[in-house]
C-alpha cells in the first residue's frame, strides 16, 4: 500500500510517498538519495545505520518508514551547518583520529550527538554505553571515545583527563 507521509528531514519539511514495508534506511538511501547512513548488518547489531528520530538514536534499518510520519529525522547529511560548518562532533572526530575506514562514522557521530543532547557532560562510561551499539573494526574505539570527550562541555574540567601517551616527536 502506498501512502504519503510528512516529516522534517534535516530541518526541511518533507513529503514523500512510501510503501508500508519500507524501513527508514531504505527510504533514506534508495528513495531520498541520502547514503550517509550505511547498512552494516540489517538487523540492529552494528549501528552503521543510526539516525536520530525525535532526539533518539535509532537503527534506521529496523525502523518502519511509516512511523516517521509527523516526526523529525536527523541524518549525518543534516548535521553540519547550512554554510558547511562542521558540527563540533564532526570536527572532533576529524581532528582526533576518530575516523579510519569511515563506514561506522555517520552512525557513530549520531549516537554521540544523541548522547550529548541528552547528557552534555557524560562520563567515559556513559560514552562507552551510548556507543556500544555502534561497532567499529578499525579504531579500537580509543580515539572515538576521545573524540566525544573532547567536545564535552569544557567547564566540566574532566575533559582533558585523556592523556596522550605517545608524545609527539616534534
Amino acid at each position: 500500500m502506498s501512502r504519503e507521509i510528512k516529516f522534517v528531514l534535516n530541518g526541511a519539511q518533507t513529503c514523500v510517498a512510501i510503501e508500508d514495508d519500507w524501513n527508514l534506511l531504505y527510504l533514506l538511501r534508495e528513495k531520498l538519495g541520502l547514503t550517509g547512513a550505511k547498512e552494516g548488518c540489517g538487523r540492529g547489531e552494528c549501528g552503521a545505520c543510526t539516525v536520530i528520530v525525535d532526539g533518539l538514536a535509532v537503527n534506521s534499518c529496523l525502523y518502519f518508514a511509516v512511523e516517521i510520519d509527523g516526526k523529525e529525522v536527523l541524518t549525518i547529511e543534516g548535521l553540519a551547518g547550512a554554510d558547511g560548518t562542521l558540527h563540533a562532533l564532526q570536527k572532533s572526530f576529524v581532528s582526533n583520529g576518530g575516523i579510519q575506514c569511515g563506514f561506522c562514522t555517520p552512525g557513530m557521530i549520531l549516537s554521540a550527538k544523541a548522547l550529548l543532547d541528552e547528557n552534555p557532560q557524560p562520563t567515559e562510561a556513559d560514552i562507552k554505553q551510548a556507543l556500544a551499539g555502534n561497532l567499529c573494526r578499525c579504531t579500537g574505539y580509543v580515539q572515538i571515545i576521545e573524540s566525544v570527550e573532547a567536545v564535552v562541555d569544557k567547564s566540566s574540567g574532566d575533559i582533558n583527563a585523556v592523556v596522550r601517551e605517545t608524545g609527539d616527536s616534534d
Binding site: I76, L86, V94, G102
Partner: peptide, 21 residues
C-alpha cells in the same frame, strides 16, 4: 611527525564518502 587529520576524514564525517554500497 605531526598529528595531522586524515585527508578523507571530513568526507567520512559528513556522509559524503561513497562506498560500494
Amino acid at each position: 611527525g605531526k598529528r595531522i587529520s586524515k585527508v578523507d576524514a571530513v568526507d567520512k564525517a559528513t556522509g559524503r564518502a561513497l562506498y560500494i554500497q
